[in-house]
Amino acid sequence: MNQVLSFFIKSGNKHAFEATLAPHMDALFKVAYQYTGQKSDAEDLIQDLLIDLYADQAKLNQVKTLKPWLMRCLYNKFIDQCRRDKKQKMNDSLEQSNIENLTARQHHHDESVMHQQVLIGLQTLSHNQRAIVSLHDIEGYSLVELSQIMDKPVGTLKSDLHRARTKLKNYLKLQPSDVAIRQCQ
């Protein structure tokens, strides 16, 4: 009887794990994609995160506001991965061919070029700066929320954001803004 009960409990936990995380998978993937710059790396990052979360479901079930907590876990996982992978293959292997083939979508050509510019621009930033810009300027998190996610004071984040933006603006400024110029090349 106990075995039967434990089977149902385990089965219930598995379903609860999926039901809890499924609504946040798209949001997690988008941020992971901004961090890594590549779809396959983003999926790997999410996979590593999910393995950790599954191993510690008790903690997952105790969290009240799940999305910011998941963003924090994702950020920590990303930074851990960057530290572990000192060769920074994510940066080095970021070639035009590895980026999402968005230029194939001809009807959104200018949008695609801008997408690639932002994506490559993000890769020019440090891991920390990339996370700040992704979460603040793209995802719309406030500095106070970022402070909780990244475990840093608001003042530090503000100056980090300022430096990251200056670098990214300079990069974007160097890109041709007129799509027609690119098409002629």
Binding site: D26, F29, K30, I51, V118
Partner: peptide
Amino acid sequence: MRQFTAPNLEAGVSAKLLRNA
């Protein structure tokens, strides 16, 4: 930056990642 949109997870990938975990 606000107009930047990352691609969505492809159909079935989300379930696959959760299953693999």
